[in-house]
């Protein structure tokens, strides 16, 4: 196990060491101590390594992640796991705004709450939030799954394309062109797998599914006010 004290080692060196790992590395377990809310911790990783961050992080932790598993033993600032391609990011505490934004793949797990714009413009990432999500979550979502065990804030899924949104609690309001949809057996299976992988104690049957009404795909004069 490699341990780095971020109180001693500059951020660029920490990230360079992590980014230097390859698919065949035998240094597979890393621990980062004293992150003290630093920005851009463990970004741009591309190796099947496990990174444990012993505390809370600032902006953009685990951005552009590929293959790696990054676990934050605290809360994460804005833009955590932004544009993730694959791998897993787990936040033991809360996530600030736009968690998992534009993510193409992988799994993001927030064990606390995520604030506004969670999963904005998501493009294939799976996001499981054990608590609540704030307003405008899954805005312009294109692909992937957003699972919320708690409540969702205003304008969930505004201008959504094809992502699936599963919410167990209350939805304050749905955004433009986002509607409730039926839970078919295949959705229950997708959700069961996600809940299982995210260590979430919930049954798929407790959730409602939301998605696109597909009425904004093409211009329709009756919808001019929605654009």
């Amino acid at each position: 196990m490699q341990t780095i004290d971020m109180g001693q080692t500059p951020l660029r060196e920490v990230n360079a060491a992590l980014q230097a790992q390859t698919t065949t590395t035998n240094q597979t377990k890393w621990v980062l101590e004293n992150p003290r809310g630093a920005h851009a911790v463990a970004v741009g990783l591309d190796a099947p390594i496990e990174v444990v961050v012993k505390g809370s992080t600032g902006y953009y932790c685990a951005g552009m992640n590929k293959q790696a598993t990054v676990q934050i033993e605290g809360s994460a600032g804005p833009g955590v796991a932004e544009n993730m391609m694959s791998g897993t990011v787990i936040i033991e505490g809360d996530a600030s705004q736009y968690a998992g934004a534009t993510g193409h793949g992988g799994l993001l797990v927030v064990k606390g709450n995520a604030s506004s714009r969670c999963g904005i413009s998501m493009k294939g990432i799976d996001i499981v939030v054990h608590g609540n999500v704030g307003h405008m979550s899954a805005f312009l979502a294109q692909k992937g799954n957003l699972v919320v065990l708690g409540d969702a804030g205003e304008a969930l899924g505004d201008s959504i394309y094809e992502a699936r949104l599963f919410v167990r609690g209350k939805v304050k309001s749905l955004g433009a062109d986002c509607i409730e949809k039926e839970m078919r057996p295949e959705h229950v299976e997708i959700l069961r797998d996600l809940l299982d992988r995210a260590g979430a104690d919930a049954r798929p049957e407790e959730f409602r599914r939301y998605g696109s009404a597909r009425k904004l795909y093409n211009f329709h004069v009756d919808h001019a006010g929605e654009y």
Binding site: R36, G37, A38, S56, T57, G58, Y59, S75, G77, G93, D94
Partner: peptide, 17 residues
């Protein structure tokens, strides 16, 4: 940002939100 709070006494057990 959280990093401005890290040196406050007892921050590790504070309610942070």
């Amino acid at each position: 940002e959280y990093r401005a709070l890290v040196d406050l006494p007892g921050i590790e057990n504070a309610r942070v939100w």
